[in-house]
């Protein structure tokens, strides 16, 4: 029996994005990550450059959920050394990181 649930190439929980350019990718990631964080924290608004790991904001549970969300939502793999403040410290850095990953993947696999 063929079980049809889609799976991405990295072996993560899945979905796909169909974003065409780097800037639109970044925009899309920014919007989705913000929406996730607003829902998760019940904070009304989060700016792009706000430090997410300042005291009293994201704790380890939420951080894990954020990484899982990013992997699932954008079909990417976050490997050990990539779990850093450089990549996850602000919404802007997350958007850069994810958009770069998506770009790199497309340049290697245009299909």
């Amino acid at each position: 029996m063929e079980v049809t649930k889609e799976h991405d190439k990295s072996g993560n929980k899945n979905t796909k994005t169909g974003i065409s350019s780097f800037s639109s990718k970044k925009e899309d990631v920014t919007a989705q990550v913000k929406q996730f964080l607003v829902k998760a924290t019940r904070i009304e608004a989060i700016s792009d450059d706000e430090e997410l790991f300042r005291p009293g904001f994201l704790n380890s549970l939420l951080a894990t959920q954020l990484v899982m969300f990013v992997e699932k939502q954008f079909g990417i793999e976050v490997v050990g050394p990539e779990l850093s403040m450089d990549n996850f410290g602000t919404v802007e850095r997350i958007a850069d990181f994810v958009a770069n990953k998506l770009e790199t993947r497309e340049s290697w696999d245009p299909s």
Partner: peptide, 13 residues
Amino acid sequence: EWGSPAQRDAWLP
């Protein structure tokens, strides 16, 4: 949720 297509085909049914 986490298995590969082959694992899902092999185990879920």
